[in-house]
Design a binder for these strands. Structure first.
Lengths: 205, 205
DNA sequence: GTCTATACTCTGATAGAC
DNA sequence: GTCTATCAGAGTATAGAC
């Protein structure tokens, strides 16, 4: 039972952990509130419903993550010497850094699960709140890949998204070996993802 | 209410439809058995549990799908003139053909959802029953990409799997235009997926 | 405002009559 | 093989204590 922080914060922390471990449906509010050391009804009082709680778990992390992505994008967007790999790096690296924090790795599992589950209301929430991030990246991809039609570009970005989501979910084969430092492993992972995605985006060019 | 076929078959058909529409947790056995025109308890009598019913919904389609994949692979595996694109085609085309059948498209959504949800028991079932298919394809990829280390090959196949799963789930941007025939659209989709995946697999080669 | 106790409906599962 | 009745556990809503 976690007794540090406010009731809301304790619920959010317990929810992130439990959602990552058991999924959104698998995590019951009774278990969750018990872990957080709060009353069952506190979830509905503070968040309105389990679904809204899920959204807040996302917002807490994604606001930071996407701000970092846009800051990284701003450093390379529109520059004449920018390579495709630089844009992919701006998108991938913040997510991977988050996934290697203590509790961040749990969150990346939650995030990948959410993208994957195709829950319409959750996707709508993500699209409404963070769609502008994807649009900015798409515009820069379009600048660097002028030979692709709009349809082809959307298609390939969609495939890249699928690959990245899958890889970041933690269920891939990416595993750090004991003789490789955390930092080195992360750099290798970024390099792997970036190389694959860049080649796919450039296919046939 | 569907009244054709045996009780088991009516349950399986109703389950495939409802799982695709609402997900595994979102589809209640009460709704499902009502749609099938059978008693609530019939699911547990015929299948043992909701989870086993899910497995049978998969087995009914995957046995055929993976047999087609292996047959297509056998036609190109080990041949000196085989290209990477031929192997990818053998993997992708059967899935896309299934996804364009009347009820098959529903199943592809169910399948993508299952891969995505990271449900451990379901993944274990899929791995135990169809892992040999992935192993045969991996062996052929290894033959055609000898410059890749084992680790790199597994990595890239994992990324390809993520991209394809995402695309086939029906939530991508793939939409047939009214002036394109169903068959033409499918061919375009296969071509798109194959080109992207082949470029990603060959990256840096 | 914050929190708790409690009850209501719906879920999957199961025992036992037929 | 099928159905009814029933169960424990789920999310949710609310009255009322502090």
């Amino acid at each position: 039972m976690n007794r540090s922080g406010s009731t809301k914060e304790r619920i959010l922390a317990a929810a992130e952990t439990l959602f990552a471990q058991r999924g959104f449906d698998g995590a019951s509010l009774r278990q969750l509130t018990s872990d957080a050391g709060v009353n069952l009804a506190a979830v509905n009082y503070h968040f309105g419903s389990k679904e809204k709680l899920v959204e807040q778990v996302f917002r807490r992390r994604l606001d930071t993550l996407n701000a970092q992505r846009l800051a990284a994008l701003a450093r390379v967007a529109g520059q004449p010497e920018t390579r495709l790999e630089d844009v992919l790096d701006a998108f991938i690296r913040p997510a991977l850094e988050l996934s290697h924090e203590d509790s961040g790795s749990l969150f990346m599992r939650v995030l990948a699960r959410a993208f994957a589950e195709h829950d319409d209301s959750l996707r709508k929430f993500l699209s409404e709140n963070y769609g502008h991030v994807m649009r900015q990246f798409t515009a820069e991809f379009a600048r660097l890949l002028p030979q692709l039609s709009k349809e082809e570009l959307y298609w390939r970005i969609d495939l890249v998204t699928g690959a990245l989501t899958h890889a970041m979910s933690g269920f891939g084969m990416i595993q750090r070996k004991s003789d490789v430092s955390e930092r080195t492993h992360r750099e290798q992972t970024v390099a792997h993802l970036t190389r694959f995605a860049a080649a796919g985006l450039r296919a046939g060019a």
